[in-house]
């Protein structure tokens, strides 16, 4: 089945759910594919565990089962989410972590890991809240779930008015960081 699954996880208030929505929107509205986005959340809107799941396919029948079952990409932006999702994560998957908030341990053994200090970068940009957009820029560079152009557009039409410039910068910084990481890893192999 040609279906791509991604899970984003962290804590409430990081924009995890919004990021999932943006990825789905990019796939549907700008890449012309199909996507199903589902979210899970606790009663707390701040500080509790948050996760967003997106399944993307070219044929909607592939999305008839709406839940993400076995994602090939896992984005982790908190230690709590790391502890919850990494042990069960597939070993041939790609784990992406916010290095400012997550410490790796043996749970990630055998998994390809790419890191970006998204929260620290966001703080340097002046607003910690854009860490998720830094992460989206990074994703656009290091994965091919959606095209970078589609994701860029989806970010810009999802963020609040007046914050476009900041978010565009956050996206580009994340993207460039990802391009750098990609160059490094390709030298390795």
């Amino acid at each position: 089945m040609e279906r791509l699954e991604i899970r984003l996880s962290g804590f409430g208030g990081q924009g995890i759910v919004r990021s999932g929505e943006i990825i789905g929107k990019a796939a549907v509205l700008y890449d012309g594919r199909y996507a199903t986005f589902t979210q899970s959340y606790g009663p707390e809107s701040r500080g509790g565990a948050a996760a967003a799941q997106v399944a993307i396919a070219n044929d909607p029948v592939e999305l008839s089962y709406p839940h993400v079952i076995d994602p090939s990409i896992l984005v982790v932006m908190s230690q709590g989410a790391y502890n919850k999702y990494v042990p069960g994560f597939r070993r041939d998957g790609l784990l992406i972590v916010d290095e400012s908030l997550v410490e790796l341990d043996e749970a990630a053994d055998g998994v390809e890991v790419l890191g970006i200090p998204a929260t620290r970068i966001a703080e340097e940009l002046g607003r910690r809240i854009v860490a998720n957009v830094v992460m989206l820029g990074f994703l656009a560079a290091v994965t091919d779930i959606v095209s970078p152009e589609a994701l860029r557009k989806a970010v810009l039409d999802s963020v609040p008015k007046g914050t476009e410039e900041l978010n565009a910068r956050a996206f580009e910084v994340g993207f460039e960081y990802g391009e750098g990481v990609k160059r490094e890893t390709s030298y390795d192999t």
Binding site: F37, L63, P66
Partner: peptide
Amino acid sequence: AEVGHMTEK
């Protein structure tokens, strides 16, 4: 809840 809280095209 599944359909109501699902986001799609």
